[in-house]
Design a binder for these strands. Sequence first.
DNA 1: TTGTTTTTGTTGCATCTGCATCTATATCGC
DNA 2: GCGATATAGATGCAGATGCAACAAAAACAA
Lengths: 151, 151
Amino acid sequence: MQMQQKQAPKTLVLPKDPVQRAWVAVQRFGPALLERVDARLRLADLPALEWYDVLWALEREGPLRQRDLADHMLIARYSISRLIDRMEADGLVERRECPHDGRGQMVHATPSGLKLRKTMWTVYGKAMREVLAPLNEKEALQLAALLAKLA
Amino acid sequence: MQMQQKQAPKTLVLPKDPVQRAWVAVQRFGPALLERVDARLRLADLPALEWYDVLWALEREGPLRQRDLADHMLIARYSISRLIDRMEADGLVERRECPHDGRGQMVHATPSGLKLRKTMWTVYGKAMREVLAPLNEKEALQLAALLAKLA
DNA sequence: TTGTTTTTGTTGCATCTGCATCTATATCGC
DNA sequence: GCGATATAGATGCAGATGCAACAAAAACAA
């Protein structure tokens, strides 16, 4: 995104109706939060959030099938397929045969992938905290709970 | 996105740390909410949310410059440029000369654009309410307030 | 078994996006 | 006024996305 604007206190119209108000907030501010963190990673010449997510899932849970990764990350199958293509091309993960299912493959993180995840976390973790800094602990939990209710 | 999954209660890992918990919620559930509403529009053969936003902004505030639209919608300039291209090609908006600034142009909604906005609202408004249905009024306002704090 | 249906994963195509760059106009400093 | 700088908007390009269609392997039905 990277909105090249410096001026304007930005008068975002907030409707009075609670539902619409919540919706506007979700629609406007939600993506902006992700974008802010992603921008940090880009600035540090690191790959985007989803790469981190893949690597972290593999580190936590061990080798996974693409199907499981997709479900896990709530993104579509064909996205995963090409995401893994790119990460494999960068030597961060490997596809290996899947025992007992000739269709599928297990995705493994490579040492280089694990290393990258660690590096990314130093930037990601910090950025995440900064973005959420305006909330105290109680508010953070509230936000998480409210969003979880919607899922 | 369109996640072709039917199974799995989906065991999304929620960290205990409040900040991380909030972040995971924002990252996972936020985009999914938008996607759900967008899917409704797609299903009804209607354009995506951003088209609605442009039309609605123009209806509320009258003709605007692309710059103002971009600021208003919190998206980048070059995105607006091409977004307006497409909408103009569909006859929903028009670019006209901008008095007192030879660089810029005023974007006007056409009657056909205004009509489309109304049509979209019948689907959009309903979808929005359904997606936010799990929250009562107080919670909706809370969510809006928390997100606003982060903006 | 054999034929039908699901599921997993890939891919062609058109579209969309970000980045960097470019042009034209406006604004500022002097 | 004049030159330097900033702003509005467009665009070439490479890469990413969604959709629909596909192949291959399982699972199921009879």
